[in-house]
Simulated scan of single mutants.
Amino acid sequence: MAVIATVSSSPSSSSRTDAVLADVTQRVQRAGHVVVPIVLRDLPAQPLLHGHADDPDVAAAVSALDVADAVVVTTPVYKAAYSGLLKTFLDLLPQFALQGKVVLPLATGGSPAHVLAVDYALRPVLASLAPSAITPGWFVLASQVSLFDTGEAVIDEPAAEALREVTDVFLDAIAGAFLLTAPARAAAGSQAVA
């Protein structure tokens, strides 16, 4: 069982980006992993914008990321790039904040013209934080996610299938990371008992 931090960077409380994240979160939980949500819009704006990582709420978000084994990062795409909210949060992280973690990048946007934002805008900044792996991400068109007044969201089957596939690759990468680190985890556990 892994601890997976999910980073929601949509400024809107009812967003297609969060609907995509909810879908992936359910798949991850069904696989037996613990999910720790980090909702950036809920962090206090002043400390976040000023890079005050010592603010209790901001520090709690950074700590949740630090203890996670893997991370799902979601963002709406604006102006062909990830959200400013996400940029602000990533900027205050330590240089190796994702070291040893498997990362799944996901984005939503209104136009297929922004499909490359995952690989050409988001992936490089995530890579700069030194994750052990960034699995293939996915871009979901806003038109593929229907939001209803009841709060329910429905993802079109082609997008849902693609999300299943990238989530499966992410889960396989986590399993592989756990297999590679099992001897180290076992050694750490036996030292703690001694």
Rank of each mutant, 00 (worst) to 15 (best):
residue 169 V to E: 12
residue 164 R to P: 03
residue 94 P to E: 13
residue 58 V to P: 04
residue 176 G to S: 11
residue 81 A to E: 10
residue 139 F to N: 07
residue 152 E to W: 00
residue 159 A to D: 08
residue 9 S to D: 09
residue 135 T to G: 03
residue 188 A to L: 13
residue 184 A to H: 02
residue 10 S to P: 04
residue 119 D to F: 03
residue 120 Y to P: 01
residue 45 A to T: 12
residue 15 S to Y: 05
residue 29 Q to V: 15
residue 59 A to T: 04
residue 105 P to H: 07
residue 155 I to A: 10
residue 96 F to S: 13
residue 54 D to R: 11
residue 119 D to L: 00
residue 81 A to S: 15
residue 63 S to F: 10
residue 69 D to Y: 03
residue 173 A to N: 08
residue 156 D to R: 12
residue 174 I to M: 13
residue 111 S to Q: 12
residue 86 L to C: 09
residue 164 R to L: 12
residue 107 A to P: 02
residue 183 P to T: 10
residue 69 D to H: 15
residue 168 D to F: 00
residue 76 P to W: 04
residue 48 L to M: 12
residue 147 L to T: 02
residue 93 L to K: 02
residue 107 A to S: 14
residue 157 E to Y: 01
residue 148 F to V: 01
residue 134 I to S: 02
residue 122 L to R: 01
residue 136 P to C: 09
residue 54 D to Y: 07
residue 116 L to M: 15
residue 30 R to P: 04
residue 169 V to M: 10
residue 46 Q to L: 14
residue 24 V to S: 10
residue 188 A to D: 11
residue 70 A to Q: 06
residue 71 V to P: 03
residue 133 A to H: 08
residue 125 V to Y: 01
residue 89 F to T: 09
residue 164 R to G: 08
residue 9 S to K: 01
residue 53 A to G: 14
residue 158 P to S: 05
residue 92 L to A: 08
residue 119 D to H: 03
residue 135 T to F: 03
residue 183 P to N: 09
residue 131 P to I: 04
residue 193 V to N: 04
residue 155 I to G: 10
residue 178 F to E: 14
residue 102 V to L: 02
residue 139 F to Y: 15
residue 169 V to S: 11
